[in-house]
Write a protein that binds this DNA or RNA. Sequence first.
DNA 1: AGCACGCCGACT
DNA 2: GTCGGCGTGCTC
Length: 724
Amino acid sequence: MPIVRVALPVPLPQLFDYTAEDADGSDVGRCVRVPFGRGDKSGVIVALPGDAEVASARLKPVHHIQRDVPPLPADWLELVGFVARYYHARLGEVVALALPPGLRRADGVSGEDVDPPLDLTAAGQAALAEARRESRALALLSEAVAAGLPARRSVVRALPAGAAVGDALKRGWLAISAQSQPRHLAVGLPTLTEDQAAAVAAFDAAEDGFRCWLLHGVTGSGKTEVYLRLAERALAAGGQVLMLVPEIALTPQLEGRVASRFPAANVVALHSGLAEGARSRGFVQALTGQADIVLGTRLSVFAPLPRLGLILVDEEHDASYKQQEGVRYSARDVAVWRARQRKVPVVLGSATPSLESWLHARNGRYATLNLSRRAVASSLPKVRCIDTSRLRLDEGLSPALHKALEERLARGEQSLVFLNRRGYAPVLSCPSCGWISTCPNCSANLVVHLADRRLRCHHCGCDGPVPAACPSCGNQDIQPFGRGTQRVEARLAELFPAARVLRVDRDAARTRSQWEALLATIANGGADILVGTQMMAKGHDFPRLTLVGVIGADSSLHAADFRAPERLFQQLMQVGGRAGRGTLPGEVLIQTEYPAHPLYQHLSRQDFDAFARMALDERRQAGFPPYTHQAMLRADAPLLHDAVAFLKEARALGEELAGDAVRLFDPVPMRLTRLARRERAQLLVEADQRGPLQAFLLAWMEALYRQRAPRDLRWQVDVDPLDV
DNA sequence: AGCACGCCGACT
DNA sequence: GTCGGCGTGCTC
Ligand SMILES: [Zn+2]
Ligand SMILES: [Zn+2]
């Protein structure tokens, strides 16, 4: 009786063997449903061992092997195996994360193309020629013909009369066309700028095979156009392209652009926001090679791609690429590993690269492609610091910013006031007894949200009404302290009564439709002054926006995290880059009490490289990454003492295993010690080289697992942690 | 992680 | 007498 070895999503270090009557070697990589404990579970067959690791009497038979779709290929199993090893997660957990839930459950899944190419039929031609009667479908036909046919259903659907696509198909005016055009057919190619052309030429000149490129292009320099040209080349060579973006919110826009550039290519979006069926379908299309371009968030780095030819990672510095729970993988780093594994090029793009990638580029490990000039706008925005150390501010607004806003209003241009703090005020406090609004579950303050009159914790999400009087002393005069977007929005509305002030933060853009409505309002010129958080810093083009005012930036200037300056610089450069991307020149005003601070000095000169050199010098002197490698052991329990005690034991255990190459630090409570009723502590491990660190972690994890921690204590490792 | 079994306090 | 507390152990 054949035996199958299965990776299951359970937090156990081992794999599980089952019997399967009809299994053979071709079933490795197939999804399988098995009995487990008292219930059922599903996972992936990773091997067909000759004999089982446990007594054969204990083996149970599998329920069902999913054979409707091809098995996951060996390179995919290698990929999840690498992720499990490197991030010290269980193979089954990585498999569970990488596979769409529907597929892993071994449900029936169809990989049918739901976005086929459509073409005009003879009947459609006749209908157009007759043009007897106005109809939506007819209007769509002429639009589609004008836009060019054949075209993908999604492209036709996106036309003004696109809603009638179903109707046109039903009438037989449009039909699924035989795939006659080459997948790499590219339409609507703009002329490249000199920089873009040089980047594409440099890429073309390189040999085939693995190579990591850093595409360092200033904001508005047209990095996406370079991605599209490189994708075109990969498609022409018969390859599939994997394109990663940091956020779900950025996928529809990019997907539209990619689909209209490559009308004959099958573009598949893959992210956690998709319905289960759509996600499985996209995954299967990638697996069968039907998908030409897979575009998605960090999850999509696990899409199986038999014809993989190129990987693109947009905004590679973005922290969203690192999963912050469960298997803490970095999709950017996994993408680079995968490119090496598959011997294909990978392009990491950003206006503000991570210091890790920037250093690799400087060392020559990565090749660099530079876009130093903007594509449409004539120049980068002018960045100026406003010294607020001796100024009286009006709700955080300096007279200079006030005046600049006035000017934009007079000229009918848009402005953005950037403040990375949601809500009305970060805390409510009582001046007479000193009470402040704290979260019952976290070591954090409750934020005042005046828009819906609630006090809310931004960490655990709990909320309550805003009390009318101090809960501690009964004082009726309790006050919101500090400043968030809602407060600035309110003050701006008072200061500029004729202006249309629009707040753009996670509260205002709760749902996708709200977010799209906000974007449309901004694009149509329905807003004069925007008040926004980092949502505004990412990806989008606002051609009418010419002024960006940054307030409250200093608060992250002295943060304890060694990565805080890097993040601040990236964020300010990105948000500043929103100004003047169209034909109008842009200006960025940064309010600060420390205008002489080197970070702001480099920022005013828009000199990312100078900042990177300075920040890396500091990192080297302090012995921080990328000059060292880190891992963090975190523990959480209802009582802080238990978490710390566990880590102290772990440290003692680790000291015995650690050679000279690995250093362990003292366990400390985390910055946000209490989160959602759990007390958290952490222990940092550091090494100069990855190898010794990995070897140590392997032995340490095993020893810790044997320790059998108390039931209410949870612990996990984070390799290459972002927050230290 | 779930979910069992298993042995001691306050309840009908 | 039992209902239920969560301590310990197992899942192919
Ligand atoms: Zn009080
Ligand atoms: Zn909380």
